[in-house]
Design a protein around this nucleic acid. Structure first.
Length: 418
DNA sequence: TCTGGGGTCCTTACCCTG
DNA sequence: TCTGCAGGGTAAGGACCC
């Protein structure tokens, strides 16, 4: 294979210097753990290696992660568990342990940060790395990639796949096509040759609905989008989406790797184990969710200007309502009262509800907004009490102190789907 | 087949203000 | 005073991502 061609590693588990292709200028890595939750579980259950394993659960849950043996049977993430069980009755089903996944994720991200300070986590199991400042110290992008892959396997006992490119979105597509346990380099002069034959669905922002719209326009590949006038795309998909897809199709993605983006919202939602029509149970769930959101908002040092709720009915239709407060808050009681008022504003009477959620939006740093809260704020004392409760929870556990209405409830609201 | 949970961003509509 | 318009803020919903 000549210099400059796109190359991926020749098979799972292959590490060390190989002829991947020209990585000159390819300073963006997208690193994605393979079947993350499932492989973390396999570390403590080696007898399950080589078997179909599904992480998920609950009567109304979905698949969170599946080993490649389970995927070969047609199982994929986000699939309803009931269907996954039918497709793979022999699969071992493991309930998720998010605390363990978070810990492994922290370790992996710390490893990445020991390579370069420019690490942008996208989720628990993937991140972008900008290694432009690391090459002089550690070697070529491919050398750095293999160093990372070896350390992930040795230190965490899981594998990952890496895309190496000049831009974030090409690196991300490359890592997906390197899976599992592989590496794919897209040389700078091969970006369009790599992108244009791919289906439109690989583009960031093209999901099921947008793909349908593009199909109706007769556009099936990234190359088709590139060769369509941008005005046509904007008419069909809207200004922003049309422009976004057209630039991506030409391999243009100027976004930098940014290590920390402040959160814009904090939310919590839960699906009931069965549909509920009792307002008291729904209020109790709203209090529980408001308590979670309030605690997280305070822990992150934010206050929230807008409180929103989400309600999903038995037929899966979903509505949301939001209210902007006169002054921002991080007080659980205020979050709850707003959420409850929003729920009441729906005017529901014995309607069967499947899910409720509470979200805090318009987040800003609490220190910048605290002055206004203190001045004449009746909730000041309550806030102090909640901060004290936060400290007790940090010391004695999340259930050490609960709102009175949530203590000793043996009803469905405390038995969510997962 | 029957659909979780935590997020972000975009579009559209409406209201208010200048 | 009325009308048209532009722009900002807000609300709601949808699509998408992992």
């Amino acid at each position: 294979m000549s210099r400059g061609q796109i190359r991926r590693s020749s098979g799972p588990g292959q590490r060390g210097p190989q002829n991947y292709g020209d990585d000159t200028g390819c300073t963006i890595l997208h690193i994605d753990m393979d079947a993350f939750f499932a492989l973390v579980e396999l570390r403590s259950r080696p007898e399950l290696h080589g078997k179909p394993v599904i992480v998920g659960g609950g009567s109304r849950g979905v698949v969170l992660s599946a080993t490649y043996e389970a995927r070969a049977l047609g199982v994929h993430s986000a699939m309803p568990m009931s269907r996954a069980r039918r497709l793979a009755p022999q699969a071992v089903v493991i309930a998720p342990d998010h605390r363990q996944y978070s810990e492994v994720s922290r370790n992996v991200m710390a490893l990445f940060n020991s390579i370069t300070p420019l690490v942008e986590p996208l989720s628990l199991d993937e991140a972008f790395l900008d290694i432009s400042g690391t090459i002089r110290r550690l070697g070529s992008p491919i050398t750095i990639t293999e160093l990372i892959r070896s350390r992930v396997v040795d230190e965490q006992g899981i594998t990952c796949s890496v895309g190496i490119a000049t831009t974030k979105f090409v690196a991300k597509i490359a890592s997906a096509r390197a899976k599992p346990d592989g590496v794919l380099v897209v040389p700078a002069d091969q970006v369009l040759a790599f992108l244009h034959p791919l289906p439109v669905a690989v583009l960031w922002g093209v999901g099921e609905r947008t793909e349908e719209q593009l199909t109706r326009l007769g556009l099936y590949t990234v190359g088709d989008i590139a060769n369509t006038p941008i005005t046509t795309l904007q008419r069909a998909l809207g200004q922003a989406t049309g422009h976004h897809l057209h630039t991506l199709a030409w391999g243009i993605d100027p976004r930098a790797v940014t290590p920390h983006e402040p959160e814009k919202s904090i939310s919590s939602e839960e699906t009931f184990s069965e549909d509920i029509d009792d307002p008291e149970l729904i209020y109790a769930k709203l209090l529980h969710l408001a308590n979670e959101v309030g605690t997280r908002v305070r822990a992150a040092g934010y206050v929230s200007r807008t409180i929103a709720i989400k309600v999903r009915f038995a037929d899966f239709t979903t509505v949301s309502r939001s209210r902007t407060l006169t002054s921002p808050t991080d007080v659980t009681q205020e979050v709850y009262e707003t959420a409850r008022a929003l729920y009441d504003s729906l005017g529901l009477e014995r309607v069967r509800v499947r899910l409720v959620g509470v979200r805090a939006e318009g987040l800003r740093a609490a220190d910048g907004a605290a002055q206004q809260l203190v001045l004449g704020a009746p909730d000041h004392g309550r806030r102090e009490a909640e901060v004290a409760v936060d400290a007790l929870r940090a010391r004695f556990g999340a259930d050490a102190v609960l709102p009175g209405r949530l203590v000793d409830r043996a009803d469905p609201v405390e038995n969510p789907a997962q």
